[in-house]
């Protein structure tokens, strides 16, 4: 049965992993998680503590999108966040539906569709050129 690894060390995780991808995900969660701690907390500090969240009107967001370093930062946040969150939700669904394969199938179908759609939408927003008012 597919189950999340519940090891407390890399050696145990390797022994418990039912498949190679499962071990890769185990390592990915720790690596992406560590990166996301820094990326997310700084993102929150910059946009929700040091500046007023209500000040983020269309013009402010469009202007911030014009900065390619900011775009790269958001790209990392979006990609790592969606993958980390998506895999985390997979662990939660696997545990919650251990005895109910039908519920597991539907919950995963809905979850992956929502996450995939939001990810594509977010990526498009980073790729498409968004006009800044007054700049053109």
């Amino acid at each position: 049965m597919k189950m999340a690894i519940k090891a407390r060390s890399f050696r145990d995780a390797k022994a418990q992993a039912k498949s190679n991808p499962e071990l890769v995900w185990w390592v990915f969660m720790r690596l992406s998680g560590t990166a996301l701690v820094l990326l997310t907390l700084f993102h929150l500090f910059k946009n929700h503590i040091a500046t007023d969240e209500a000040g983020w009107d269309y013009e402010a967001v469009a202007s911030s999108y014009a900065d390619w370093w900011n775009k790269l930062y958001l790209f990392a946040l979006l990609g790592l966040g969606m993958m980390h969150g998506g895999n985390g939700l997979r662990y939660v669904i696997d545990d919650a539906t251990a005895k109910n394969p039908v519920a597991r199938f539907w919950m995963k179908s809905i979850a992956y569709t929502l996450i995939g759609a939001a990810l594509v939408f977010g990526l498009l927003a980073l790729i498409v050129k968004i006009p800044v008012p007054g700049v053109g």
Partner: peptide, 28 residues
């Protein structure tokens, strides 16, 4: 786990709301 699921839900909402800039000023 609880905070993880809550954050993912917010991340989806946040991506759609901020990404809606590409649909124009009125939608945003």
């Amino acid at each position: 786990r609880l905070s993880g699921v809550a954050i993912l839900l917010y991340l989806i909402l946040h991506t759609v709301s901020i990404g809606s800039t590409m649909l124009g000023e009125e939608v945003y």
